[in-house]
Structures are given as structure tokens and as C-alpha cells.
Computed example of a mutant assay.
Amino acid sequence: MEKQQSEVVLYGTWASAYCTRVRLALKLKGITYEYVEEDLTNKSESLLHYNPVHKKVPVLVHKGKPVAESLVILEYIDDCWNNSPKLLPEDPYQRAKVRFWANFYDQKIFPSSHAVALSKGKEQVNAIKEFDELLGAFEKGIEKDFSIKFPFNGETLGFLDIVVGTHACNYRAFEEAVTVVFDPKKHPAFLWWVAKLKDSPLIKETLPPHDKLVAKIKEVFFQAPKA
């Protein structure tokens, strides 16, 4: 007899910050789900079926209907399971601001941090400068738009906390494996926020193990080129 699929299924990979943010949101909402670990070197037929456009994780399947792209999935979770805690503010303008900065982080800061790791010499100096400028703009924008240093109040995780926390809270593993990216002298406010997020019990239990992640990052950044 064919196994019946759970109502909520998440296709992901354990080391992906994009997948971790979806797992964190599901836990935060108290949603029971089935998790399917994908091997991205040998993608399953299910993944290719549910995400034929990008063929990437994460993919959330709810009642047989797939939702792709992590930020889209977070919004879907918040809309579909509208119980507390809410991930996004109720006010439309505040929601728009949160969406803007979440997209800025994903489209600018996330890839810029990788550019620092992948470059050397003068190219790396320029990459670090660009990263610092982008993170500085993010810090100032958050403070201006939300009238506080950063959104996390030490109690309730919100949309931006999930987006940033599941990436930046792993920065020590990234530094150990590759290079220093976040300079505490240049960005004390941002790293204060990250430290607060790392103290969240829910984030602690959702983040991948440090040593295992270090090994994975080294594998990704320093793997030998194929012949």
C-alpha cells in the first residue's frame, strides 16, 4: 500500500539557511510537518515535480499544493496559520517595510558575504568594502523604519528575526571554515541583535550543529573541481 503523504511536508537540506528559516517558522507556529531531506546532487522526483521551475529547496507542500522560495513560504505560513505569534505586522505599511528589508538581506547581504569568502587580495578588499556598506545601510534602515535598533524584543521572533537569525547566527561556523565577514568593530549593533537571537531557545534547537556545519561549509567552498 502506498504511504499516505502528511498534510504538511517540507523538502529541504539540513545545512541550508533558507530551509532552516522555514523549519523555524513551522516550529514557532506549532505546525506538525513531515521533513524530507534532499540530496541536491541527486534530486528526488518529488522535488522536481513540486518545483519544476527552480528545482531547489525549500519547498513546502500543503495538502498536495507546493509553495517554493523561502520568503514566499514564510508569508504563506503566516497567512494560512494566522494564530499567534504573527510573523508579519498587521499594519500594511509596516508589513511592506519588513518585506523590503527581508528582500534586501537576501538579495544583497547574503550573496555579498559569500563574495567576501570567494575572493582574494584586492578583489576581497573591494568585496569587504561593499559588504560593510550594504550591512551599514541595512542597520540604518532598520533603525529608521522601526524606531528601534533591531526588531527582536527578546521574547517573540518576527519575520526579520527568522530571516536574519537563520543565516547570521551561523557566522562563527562560517568564520572558522572560510574567513571573517562580520566585523564587530564596524557593526556592533547588528552583532548585538545576532547575539540576542542566538540566545533564543527555539533558534538554538533549530540551527544545524556547529562542527557539522563547519565541515559542510569547507566542503562547499573548497571542494576539488571535477575533472
Score class of each variant (00 low, 15 high):
18 Y>V: 05
107 Q>K: 11
28 L>K: 00
179 T>D: 09
133 E>R: 15
221 F>M: 03
158 G>T: 01
123 E>Q: 04
14 W>I: 03
206 T>D: 08
71 L>E: 11
184 P>I: 08
21 R>I: 01
186 K>N: 07
50 Y>T: 04
222 F>C: 06
140 K>T: 11
94 Q>H: 10
165 G>H: 01
56 K>L: 09
144 K>A: 13
199 D>K: 11
97 K>P: 00
174 F>T: 04
101 W>N: 06
171 Y>C: 04
170 N>P: 05
220 V>T: 10
46 S>R: 12
220 V>N: 10
174 F>P: 01
29 K>Q: 09
151 P>F: 04
118 L>H: 08
107 Q>V: 02
108 K>F: 11
198 K>T: 12
188 P>E: 15
106 D>M: 11
189 A>Q: 10
85 P>F: 12
161 D>T: 04
204 K>N: 12
115 A>P: 02
108 K>R: 15
155 E>H: 13
168 A>M: 12
29 K>M: 07
221 F>I: 02
109 I>T: 07
71 L>Y: 09
167 H>F: 11
63 K>A: 07
200 S>A: 14
166 T>E: 05
49 H>T: 10
42 N>L: 12
151 P>Y: 03
56 K>I: 06
81 W>I: 07
175 E>S: 05
217 I>H: 02
46 S>L: 10
34 E>N: 10
144 K>F: 13
19 C>H: 06
129 K>A: 10
181 V>N: 01
187 H>I: 09
42 N>H: 09
126 N>D: 12
221 F>A: 00
218 K>P: 00
95 R>W: 10
146 F>D: 04
138 F>T: 00
153 N>E: 15
36 V>M: 05
32 T>Q: 14
71 L>P: 02
1 M>T: 13
87 L>P: 00
176 E>G: 00
141 G>H: 09
49 H>G: 08
26 L>V: 05
134 L>A: 10
69 E>D: 13
39 D>K: 02
103 N>P: 06
128 I>H: 07
205 E>K: 03
18 Y>R: 00
88 L>E: 08
134 L>R: 09
77 I>F: 00
199 D>N: 14
9 V>S: 06
158 G>W: 06
80 C>F: 12
114 H>G: 09
41 T>E: 14
208 P>Q: 06
205 E>W: 08
136 G>M: 00
30 G>V: 02
207 L>T: 01
195 A>N: 14
25 A>Y: 05
39 D>I: 07
115 A>R: 11
53 V>L: 09
193 W>P: 07
129 K>M: 11
69 E>T: 02
206 T>W: 08
126 N>V: 15
128 I>V: 11
101 W>G: 00
146 F>A: 05
168 A>N: 10
57 V>I: 13
160 L>D: 09
26 L>Y: 04
121 G>R: 07
127 A>P: 05
54 H>K: 13
1 M>I: 14
126 N>F: 13
63 K>C: 12
188 P>Q: 15
91 D>E: 09
3 K>M: 09
196 K>A: 10
31 I>R: 07
224 A>W: 13
165 G>N: 04
180 V>E: 11
133 E>N: 15
121 G>H: 10
136 G>H: 01
54 H>S: 10
27 K>E: 15
205 E>Q: 11
187 H>Q: 14
103 N>R: 14
181 V>R: 00
95 R>D: 11
